[in-house]
Design a protein around this nucleic acid. Structure first.
Lengths: 343, 343
DNA sequence: CAAGAAACTGGGAGCGCTTCCAGTCCGTCC
DNA sequence: GGACGGACTGGAAGCGCTCCCAGTTTCTTG
């Protein structure tokens, strides 16, 4: 009889014919659903191997209404934000978590209007089975996406307003408290902070953690400047802080990048770190080890964040209804703070 | 008559019915292919709008054998490599270039065996119309993927051996020459270099550029240590260099990260930068502005790299047969080198 | 040993779209 | 005025897969 033409990739029918079974049986054998006798199953497996058969995802998607893809949407406009190591780490975590499955990762930068439109399109046309959404600002219209759509959405980091049904976040508040307590224990009293944009929950939470710790120690949390999580922004904020509060003896910056900027300005002003001023960052990006002195900072498990978001989304697709997850942070003491004084 | 049930998203048939035309005409109108009279075209467009119709990509893919997705595969194992800002920038460039099209970006980390298998799977099952492949080591079996498969492959950076048909690269050799010449012009003579892993064309080319410039100036290019592009690797290499060549008065590090490591070691050894030792990096990542002193480095247009790869791939899918593209680099003089002495 | 249950099989009807092609409807030209 | 050509239309055949369901085979069990 005729054998499959070599210029066409084999279809399920080819496999079935070669294995001497019907297409249905072949399908069931391949998808490991029940009702296939052992010998036929083996025959199908052999045929698959011999033919080098790979199922056609489009056909499968059309038939099952599941496409085998999840999307990571990052709602950031500025290339600067996306370009830092943070998202690369998240992506790495997602990617590894996806490996054992046969889901595929679609990446959408949903900062600019074009990107957002694209995300809408992807969702509405069901090009993805689920969504991971990150970096939403407080009033982002994308939050509504989660309600409008039928595909499940997992948030990376809480949006500022409204608790989404599913999210994974790091313990920003606790981490910031840790950082501030570390400074207090090292004997600092006039502690300033540089926050991120307060329209972001991350920034808001870290600021709250700072105030928590200060309140407990009965210290004033009034030395505050706001910035945008960037190095340049951190530098500018530090400059303002020095002008407004020349007496400050420590700074908690809500990101490593801002801390790096602060470090630069402090040096330019002749303030020794950690001698005159202690500095703590947040994130523990690679940057933190490249500054001088190396940065004491709060480590957040970024890869795990990606991995856990993925796991959560997959479990939802699998019918589970998980609860939100908060990942722990920990302090990494390096050169930009003094060792805490005992007692 | 009955209207489309609200719980099912509208199909082409719904559109056709509402517009009072046949499915074929609706399809043609939507895809802007000929043979549709103006009034029917308008009617279809209206129906699309009113129904909020979005074509089902799976069905379309099944019928046309084009899926509307391209994949970016990054052949890196170590999280450290992927996690730096470089790939984030590339992705940003790709993403922006993809926005005006309706292609989607699928990301695959093809470093670990699982990831590579996944890439194979994606390609063989035609889950993507084209591939962008980055960071291949010299002997990477993935190079063969480009030959085995029928979907076009665009390389980001040449693989070490064998000139692929389509690639976009930065002028690594020229950039390294620039860097080295800069050091020479600043009066340095005992110039060392820290290379990347020479199984990577990037590393090899940058090393060659270094030797080019040294040869032209008739200086010995013998102060060489190899590392892995990482900060820690750069630091270790710098330590070895100082031991083997204590007289060195400048270093060209083939990446900013390695340069940052070198800076750290130089400081620890009491060598002033740029007073005692001039340092130049390569890449111009954000890191380069956070070091102390800020790093003189070779800027490469990373976002453009991503964008150009994308453009090239899309043009190929469109039937074009473009030629490889080499992107220019330029020197960015900052604090880690002295101003060149005139004459 | 018969009868009912359980396990297995494969035909066939879609999933939503594109596209070929045979047919219809005009306007035009000799 | 009839025939011809071009513009347009829509029926129908897939694309490759899943899954329902009716039918068949095999195994229990009283």
């Amino acid at each position: 009889m005729d054998t499959a033409p070599p210029d066409r990739s084999p279809t399920l029918d080819d496999v079935a014919e070669r294995a001497g079974v019907s297409r249905s049986v072949a399908s069931r054998a391949i998808n490991n659903v029940g009702n296939v006798s052992a010998p036929k199953r083996v025959a199908v497996q052999r045929a698959v191997r011999e033919l080098g058969y790979v199922p056609n995802p489009s056909a499968r998607a059309l038939a099952t209404n599941r496409v085998g893809a999840v999307v990571l949407a990052v709602a950031t406009d500025e290339p600067g934000i996306f370009a830092d190591a943070f998202f690369a780490q998240v992506i790495y975590g997602i990617s590894v978590a996806l490996e054992p499955t046969d889901f595929t990762l679609t990446l959408v930068l949903a900062g600019r209007p074009e990107g957002r439109a694209k995300l809408q399109q992807i969702v509405r046309s069901r090009r993805a089975d689920g969504i991971m959404l990150m970096n939403l600002h407080g009033d982002d219209p994308l939050t509504r996406l989660a309600e409008q759509t039928t595909v499940p959405v997992v948030f990376g980091g809480r949006p500022l307003r409204g608790e989404p049904r599913w999210y994974v976040d790091t313990d920003n508040r606790g981490g910031a408290r840790l950082a501030t307590e570390h400074l207090i224990e090292a004997g600092h009293r006039r502690i300033a902070t540089i926050t991120g944009p307060l329209s972001l929950d991350v920034a808001e939470s870290r600021h709250r953690g700072f105030r928590d710790a200060m309140a407990v120690a009965e210290l004033p949390a009034t030395r505050v400047e706001h910035a945008d999580f960037s190095e340049a922004g951190g530098a500018a904020a530090m400059t303002r802080l020095l002008r407004a509060h020349p007496d400050l003896d420590a700074v908690f910056a809500a990101s490593d990048n801002m801390a790096a900027g602060a470090l630069r300005v402090l040096r330019a002003h002749g303030r020794a770190v950690p001698g005159d001023v202690g500095v703590v960052g947040f994130d523990d990006l690679p940057t933190a080890q490249h500054t001088d002195p190396q940065l004491t900072t709060v480590h957040q498990p970024v890869r795990a964040l990606g991995a856990e978001m993925t796991r959560m989304l997959l479990s939802i697709l699998d019918g589970a209804r998980p609860t939100p997850l908060i990942l722990p942070t920990r302090l990494v003491a390096r050169g930009s703070t003094r060792t805490p004084v005992p007692g």
